[in-house]
Design a protein around this nucleic acid. Structure first.
Length: 143
DNA sequence: AGCCATGCACCG
DNA sequence: CGGTGCATGGCT
């Protein structure tokens, strides 16, 4: 009797930063993966004893297209350098095709059969929605 | 911890 | 030769 059913159909999401989408001029080719929030458990375990280990992952989007991303652990901090972070690279085409901008969200899911899917969520840019004008110079005065 | 930025290698 | 992506350093 085992109780392991947590690894089924999990999904994570990441809000794109300007640098992730390339808007800052950086040629990043992908996005940073936060080390916190349990996000890492979505990805395969990488060999931390070797430098910059990586895993190629296949994702299916909503139109059933297949995408190949590279999950890389830049860990040269434990070798020569200063890096200690995870990245998902090779996403430029996907970002462009869907016209994703900073603030938009990427949702990655993992089905029970191991299939990984990718979705995106447009940021709600209704910035002036809650700026309800109430005639602030008027107020009720009791006499 | 996460985001920004860049030199260089590679490929069209 | 210019765009793209990797790897890496720097800055907040």
């Amino acid at each position: 009797m085992s109780y392991k059913q947590l690894e089924n159909a999990m999904s994570i999401s990441k809000v794109l930063s300007a640098n992730d989408t390339g808007e800052t001029g950086g040629h990043q080719a992908g996005m940073l993966i936060p080390k916190t929030g349990g996000v890492l458990s979505f990805f395969p375990l990488l060999e931390k004893d070797e430098k910059n280990p990586r895993a190629s992952l296949k994702f299916i989007d909503s139109s059933n297209d297949e995408w190949k991303f590279m999950f890389i652990y830049y860990n040269n901090k434990f070798f020569n350098g200063t890096r200690n972070e995870f990245r998902l690279t090779g996403m430029t085409k996907f970002i462009r095709q869907n016209n994703l901008k900073a603030g938009d969200k990427i949702i990655l899911s993992c089905e029970r059969d191991g299939t990984r899917t990718i979705k995106h969520e447009r940021a709600k840019t209704e910035e002036t929605k809650n700026v309800l004008k109430l005639g602030s110079s008027w107020k009720v005065v009791k006499i």
